[in-house]
Computed example of a mutant assay.
Amino acid sequence: MVVNVFISAVTTDTLSRKDAVAWVNNLLKSHFTKVEEMANGAAYCQLTHLLFSNSINLRKVKFNPRSEPDILTNWKVLTTSWKDLGIDKPVDVEKMKKGKFQDNMEFLQWFYKFFKANLNVEPEDYDAVGSRFGEDLPALKGASGPRPAVASVRPVVAQTMKTKTTMQPVAPVPATKAAVAPTVRNGARPAPATSAGNRRSETSPNEELLKQEIEKQKTLAAEWETMAKDMESEREFYYNMLQRVEALVHEADELKATTIEVETLKKVLYDGNEETVENGDDNSQLNEALNANIDDTDTF
């Protein structure tokens, strides 16, 4: 009798991703490195075969599927077997086959609990590798795929040897640079005799244009940086001037005065700012304009 289980977010008997992968590898003598590799359903087919003897025909299982139809076949074999066993767990094959961690981890957590609930005897004598006919799970890199047939190479070698033995001698050709033909080995003709080093050392027109454009952009960036510094200095100059004038206005408000002495204002505008003295002629035109405006009236 199959014991159906459920799992939720508050279930406590769950495994971490590393423990879950290690648990599967221990049972199946496999070498999974992450949960997502079980998305093709082959591992669940063999785990069901281990848990319920002869419940699945493992010859129908594609342990290392190479296409989506093979993956769908595995899940069909699994769900058909579960239906016969009375397992009521719904399987969203569309989600599982995408190989996303969250979906596959939740499914593996459920299967771990289901396996523990239905395990009667520890599977110590289960031959995991033999049950899947000696196939690696998953396939090791470099070990999958059909090996090239040696017999198919021998006729080519024999034909090549026969051609060499039946070739007629050819009169020698004067050893000049123009008459020397490139040597052909194993049917592959070498590349034309050009100097790769010389080609690399030569600078193409595109590279020259690119270098010129880079230098141009560097010069432009330096000009913009200088301009930005000048604008920043000018901003600070006028900001400090405005602060001093504002201080005079506040002082007049506190004294309840309605005017500000022109000499006091001139002192703030010209004598009180160190940057004005340093700049000198740079602000001479501004100073003259301010003097002209201020001299028109005695007070503000």
Rank of each mutant, 00 (worst) to 15 (best):
M1F: 08
V2M: 04
S8G: 13
S8R: 03
D13E: 10
S16K: 08
D19Y: 00
A20G: 06
A22M: 02
W23N: 03
N25S: 07
L27K: 08
S30V: 04
H31I: 15
F32G: 03
K34S: 15
C45F: 01
L47H: 12
L50V: 10
L51T: 04
F52I: 04
F52Q: 02
N54M: 05
N54F: 07
I56Y: 02
N57V: 10
N57A: 13
K62R: 11
P65Y: 02
E68T: 00
T73A: 01
L78R: 04
S81V: 09
S81I: 11
W82I: 08
I87M: 06
D92Y: 05
V93A: 04
V93M: 01
M96F: 00
K97V: 00
G99F: 10
G99M: 13
K100R: 09
K100N: 11
F101G: 04
D103C: 04
M105N: 15
W110P: 00
F111R: 03
Y112R: 06
K113V: 05
K113R: 14
K116F: 07
K116R: 12
V121H: 05
E122N: 10
E124W: 05
D127Q: 12
A128Q: 08
V129W: 01
E135S: 11
L137C: 01
P138K: 04
L140E: 10
K141H: 12
K141Y: 14
G142I: 11
S144M: 05
G145R: 08
G145H: 08
S152W: 08
S152E: 15
R154H: 12
V157Q: 02
A158V: 14
Q159M: 10
K164F: 11
K164I: 15
T165A: 15
M167C: 12
P169T: 14
P169A: 09
V170N: 07
P172L: 03
V173C: 07
T176L: 15
A179V: 08
V180N: 05
A181T: 12
V184D: 02
N186L: 09
A191Q: 05
A191Y: 08
P192F: 03
A193W: 02
S195T: 07
A196C: 10
A196L: 14
N198S: 04
N198Y: 04
R200D: 06
S204E: 11
S204L: 13
L209D: 14
L210H: 09
K211W: 04
Q212D: 13
Q217P: 03
K218C: 03
T219L: 13
A221F: 10
W224A: 12
E225F: 01
E225D: 05
T226Y: 06
M227I: 02
A228F: 00
M231L: 07
E232N: 08
Y238A: 13
Q243L: 15
V245C: 15
V249G: 07
H250L: 14
H250I: 13
E251I: 12
A252P: 09
D253S: 15
D253N: 15
E254T: 10
L255E: 15
T258R: 08
I260E: 05
I260H: 01
E261F: 02
V262D: 15
V262K: 12
K266G: 08
K266D: 11
Y270P: 02
Y270S: 01
G272C: 02
V277K: 06
G280V: 00
D281N: 04
D282L: 10
N283K: 07
Q285H: 10
L286R: 12
E288N: 09
A292W: 06
N293M: 14
I294A: 12
D295A: 12
T297N: 10
